[in-house]
Structure formats: structure tokens, C-alpha cells
Design a protein around this nucleic acid. Structure first.
Lengths: 360, 360
DNA sequence: GATCCCGCAGAAAGCGCTTGCTAAAGATCA
DNA sequence: TGATCTTTAGCAAGCGCTTTCTGCGGGATC
């Protein structure tokens, strides 16, 4: 059915070995022969069979990218930068690798299944992005899978996810985000504006990102003398509501927060999407932003500046991180010393936060 | 290095053929033998080599999904639904196919390159999503590639993209969006609110989606007696500004619109993202929404309801469409009669549109 | 003119799996 | 009891490519 190497060889009057060499350009072939072969390739519309090549050469041009939610621009931005770095148009000589974006939906089972699928394909590399599920059994299962992948030559990169526990086996270059530091600076910003009754809507439970951001929030409170032993600090603990990474979580959590303390003056959300939900709930409750309640997000996704007022948030250089992950997974750059690079996050102060001064 | 079928066979004391049959379950194997094999597989942590399997069986479990922009939730929603339909967790007996999300960035060259890459991988299916680049040469090139893919057994599905020109070769099941109808209803809504000076910000030029939506807008004007021969209609033509699908395009286009007519009372945008840019520009110009200017988007992406005021827009059932595309590309459902299914779009009236009545 | 080497092409051995065909048992039947 | 099915397992031939090794012709070397 399909055109094979042998067909091309026959047409060009050479052996299939020669055709292969012309195609790969890794062996001297006389100019005239090369031309003849190239002509035959074009005339027959020949396209190599990736599977056969991969099997014979024991290489693959698939790179797996696991994301928690493709529909979330957080991952979209990482994936897009990564893909353009390693794939088509990455300024690479060869046609590029194929990035397989796998949507786990945050499910541990799906994560494992995808890793198996990628192992089957003998993927050249695997990039795990975003927060990890914090469950010992699952972490161990992932580490096992990754170790096996690494042993068979697959390069592993973590992007926006904490490094694997030391000694757990596989070597994985890690690009970690400073979630803790960013969250801390954000809450410090709120405190220094004068807020004391600060609500916090977390991400989904059992996710590393959720934990780190919450830790940063608490660290800021403690550092400003609002530790849980103080009155205001204890109150702040009451104002932590567990949510998720979707807008509905922010909406519901906000109603809950208002129930717990209707004199709340600021709400920090786990990410920008959640923050939009927070804003919506506040507006629906007849509260103004930032006059009555300040709101802050995290990630600095593009839509944040279009909220009204524009969202104060913490910027993570997602595109840079994605591109870097791409270079790492191809082995085009050396892994950072120690295997872990932490990218800094930056506080972006915009209109959604202001000193408390509501007239309620 | 890696564990092979032969290793498992040796351990289980059977031939590799038997192991293969146990794994695929497509041939009778005695219970005791099966058990022995399964034990060996587990003990050795065996994972089949996808390439070898694909080569031998002439099948593949890769499905390519081409999108114009992964970071855009429009595509994210489609891809996510599609992937969960065909892949892990799709409720399928087998472990599922791997959806390869390829980000073309709207570039025709990248689109072709990805099609070649997928052809190399002998993909089981290819889904092209979103607006097509309208250029005869490119359309022909794509059709050629698709025809070749189809001939070698790859199933082709178009989702949110107009059907291929009839007789151009490949059979492709198409899920088209009623962009024209949606846009028309949207503009009719604006007109019936009383607007006459309506701006329109288009998507990128030369894209089918852009054209269809604009045609809908013009059709609405014409149907309401505001054809280009009328005074108001001619004016409306002046108020069409070409843009793109990003927020910046909306922002800039709005400033341009205000320059052309500072008495404009409504602006329809090519999509929701653009609409947010429009809102931002209006606010920065000191105009209120919807009192001074009504704004409408398209697509009904999740963040639209969080804009303030919530965005009037046209809903496209992206998730349904993506899931359906997934079923089609697997051949789990029959293609629609005629090969083309058009999904309806629905006008979602929210707070960002109101009768004109600004006090400027 | 004999020797050596270099540049280039082909033969062929796999890569790890699937599958058609064959064959050895045991089951069934007359 | 011999003949005929059924099961169930193995043999071996590929799938389409890469790559090692072998070999051939001719210019350089002495």
C-alpha cells in the first residue's frame, strides 16, 4: 500500500541502504546518487515510517508532556512554549519532535496510565508539569515509572513541580516555581496595605502547589507578627477555605468566607481563575473591589489584566519555564546544578488591591 | 536492555507467540498458560514496545489533534473533551489512544509539517480544529496530505472548521460550527436593542472563522435594512476593523474605532478574548459598559461570565463537539449524513449589552 | 607496476512484535 | 478402535527501517 524504502530504492536504482543514508545524511553518498534518490523520493511522495525507523534505530521522536488541565491557560502557556521549542519551528535542523500533550485532569491514575503509554512508545522524553499529587503511594508509583523510563533512556523533566524525593531513583531535571515565596510576598503586600482580616482560598487539597502557596501565605502572616498565636493570626486561620482551581471554587469559597466574617477586607486566591470566581461572588454580594474587599490571584494569566479592576497577582514566567523545559528534555542544555532550578516569581500589583477603607 | 517479549516467553516457558496472544487476548489460550504468562509479565515489569507492535500489526494508537493555539481555552476545551473521550479514562476497554495535541500557532507551514510528522507515525486519526487558513495553495496542500493519510487508513475529522472543498479527495467527517448564524443573531440582538453605530472587530485575516463571523454580522445588518446601500449600513462598514484573536487586537481596534466614530454605541468582537481587550480599551477611555458602549464576544469561554459586566456572547458547545470529534476519529460512531454536522450556536445575553442611552 | 587506502555502495542481520500456518494432543463420534 | 474434530501452542515469515561489515574500483604512493 504505502510507499516503502524499497520502492524508492528500486526507482532510484540503488539499494535501500543507500536511500536510508541519503535520508539521514549520516553517511557519505556521492552527489549524483543522492540526487537520484531525492528525485525518487519526491516522485513517489515517500514518507518514512516512523515506527519502523524507531524500532530499527531504537529512538523515538515523541516527547510526552503531562498536564493537569489542557483547558487551563496555565498549562497551555507552558505547553505552547515547550512545543515550539522542541517541535516544528523550534529552529531545529530536523523536522522536530512531536510533543504529546497528555491531559491527566489531575487524576493520579491517568498520570500513571499515560506514563505507561509513553513507556510503550519509548518516548524520547517526558515532562511533568504543574503541581504533584501529594500521596506517598502515588509518589512512589510515579518514581518507579520514571525510574524505568529513565533507565531506558527517556529524559525526564519536571516543570512547575517540586523535585522528586532525593534518592528515589530517577534523575530528573527540575524547574521549580517559587510558589511559597510568591504567595508570601503577596500576603505581605496585603498586610502592608493594612489588611488584617484576610481570607484565603486554596487550590485542590493534596496538591503540592496548593500546599506551597498556602505555606507562603502563612509565613507572611507569621513574619508580620500575625502568627496563629495572635488574635488576628488565629482569625486568619479561620479564613482559610479549601477550594480548587476552578472559578466555581472561588465563588463558593467566597460566599463561605463572607459567612464566616462579613467584615473581611481582602481575599487571596490560589490562582487567577479562582480569583475571578471570588470577584464574581463579591460583586453578587454587592461588594466593591477593591474599596470593600481587595482580591489577589496567582499566576498572572493573560486574562487577569482584563478583569475589572485588573487583578493583583503573582507572575510566573510560564513561557520561559516551558521553553527551558523543552531544551532540557532534548538535552540541548545541561541540567541546572543540583538538578533543580527555581524560577523566581514576581508580585504584580494592580487595581484589585488597595488599603481597606470600605464604608460598610 | 529493556525487557522483551522473548524474555517473558522464556520465563513463562512458552513461545513468544503465546505471550503476544495473552497480551492481546485475541486468540484462545489455556487458562493455566495465561496465568503463567501474566505472572511473568508482572515479575519482569514488561511493557510492550509500541513501535514494534505498530510495525508488525500496521496499526497505531496515536491520534493527532491540530490546534491553532493551545494556550487558548477555545482549543483547550475541545482538546480536553476529545482526549478524555479517546484516551485514558474514556471508558474504553483498551488503555486508550494517545492524543497528540499539535500547536500550529496558526501557521500554515507548521500545519503541513505536523501532518507530515503524523503521517510518519502512521497516526490512527487526525483531527483538525478551528478556523482554516483560506489560501488556495494551502488548502490544496492540506487536502493532498489528508488524502494521502486517508488512503493509508488514517481517519480524518474536522472540528470547528468548514468542510473540505467537495471532490478534493479525502473523506473527512466534519463538525462545523454555525459561526455565521451565531454572529448574525448576535448583531441582530444589538440592532434590536436599538444600536445603529456598531463596531466590529474581526479575527485574523484569511481565516475561515473570521470570514464566517463577519458575514453573519453583515447579514444581520442587511436583514434589518441596514445594508451597505443605506446610510447607517455604509457607516457600519466603516466600523469594521481587522484584528486578531488576542486581547491586544481588541484593545487596539477599539481605540481605532473610537477614533473613527466616538459616538459608537456597541462593539462586537471576533471572540471573547478580543472582547476583553475591547472592554479594557473602553474603560481606559473612560467609557462605561454597557451604559456608554455595549460589548459582545463569541465562543462563551468560561471567563466571559466573570468579566464585569458579564459578557454577552455566542455559545458554542465546544466540549460536546470535541467529544464527538473523538468518537468520530475512532470510528466509534458513524459519520453524519453527508459527512457534515453543523452544531448550533446559542446567543447568551448577559450584562455587557443594553440599549444605547449613553449620556456622553 | 605493485601496494595501499579511500570513498562509496550493497548484502544482510537484526529491532520486537504479530499472525498464518502447522502440528500435537485430547475429545468426540460412529 | 480408528477417524475426525477441537483446542492450544509453536514455527517462522515478515512489518520497514538502520547499520555493521564486506567489497569494489581507482587515485595516490613508492
Amino acid at each position: 500500500m504505502a510507499v516503502t524504502l524499497a520502492d524508492v530504492a528500486a526507482r532510484a536504482g540503488v539499494s535501500s541502504a543507500t536511500v536510508s543514508r541519503v535520508l539521514n545524511g549520516n553517511y557519505p553518498v556521492a552527489g549524483s546518487t543522492r540526487e537520484r534518490v531525492q528525485r525518487a523520493v519526491e516522485e513517489l511522495d515517500y514518507v518514512v515510517n516512523g515506527q519502523a525507523r524507531a524500532l530499527a534505530a531504537a529512538t523515538s521522536d515523541l516527547v510526552g508532556v503531562l498536564v493537569n488541565d489542557v483547558a487551563d491557560p496555565f498549562f497551555g502557556l507552558i505547553a505552547s512554549a515547550l512545543q515550539s521549542e522542541i517541535g516544528v519551528g523550534g529552529g531545529q535542523p530536523d523536522a522536530g519532535k512531536l510533543a504529546v500533550v497528555c491531559n491527566t485532569g489531575g487524576s493520579p491514575e491517568a498520570e500513571l496510565t499515560y506514563l505507561t503509554l509513553l513507556e510503550r512508545q519509548r518516548a524520547a522524553g517526558v515532562v511533568l508539569t504543574g503541581g504533584a499529587v501529594e500521596d506517598d503511594a502515588h509518589t512512589a508509583a510515579v518514581a518507579t515509572r520514571l525510574a524505568r523510563l529513565a533507565r531506558s533512556g527517556t529524559r525526564i523533566v519536571l516543570c512547575g513541580r517540586p523535585p522528586l524525593p532525593a534518592g528515589s531513583g530517577p534523575e530528573a531535571a527540575t524547574i521549580a516555581f517559587d510558589n511559597r515565596g510568591g504567595a508570601r510576598r503577596l500576603t505581605e503586600h496585603l498586610i502592608s496595605l493594612g489588611h488584617r482580616r484576610i481570607g484565603y482560598v486554596t487550590g485542590p487539597q493534596g496538591r503540592s502547589t496548593t500546599r506551597h502557596r498556602l505555606e507562603g501565605h502563612r509565613a507572611a502572616l507569621a513574619a508580620r507578627g500575625l502568627g496563629p498565636q495572635t488574635r488576628a493570626g488565629a482569625h486568619a486561620e479561620q479564613l482559610i477555605v479549601h477550594g480548587g482551581y476552578d472559578r466555581g471554587a472561588g465563588y463558593d469559597a467566597t460566599l463561605e468566607l463572607l459567612r464566616r466574617d462579613d467584615g473581611i477586607t481582602a481575599i487571596a486566591a490560589a490562582n487567577d481563575t479562582v480569583a475571578l470566581g471570588v470577584c464574581a461572588a463579591l460583586r453578587d454580594s454587592g461588594l466593591r473591589i477593591p474599596e470593600d474587599v481587595s482580591v489577589a490571584g496567582f499566576d498572572d494569566l493573560p486574562f487577569g489584566v482584563d478583569a475589572s479592576p485588573a487583578l493583583t497577582t503573582v507572575r510566573i514566567p510560564l513561557q520561559d519555564a516551558g521553553a527551558r523545559a523543552g531544551r532540557l528534555v532534548l538535552g540541548r542544555v545541561a541540567p541546572p546544578p543540583g538538578g533543580v532550578a527555581t524560577v523566581a516569581t514576581e508580585l504584580m500589583v494592580r487595581g484589585s488591591t488597595a488599603p481597606p477603607g470600605g464604608s460598610r
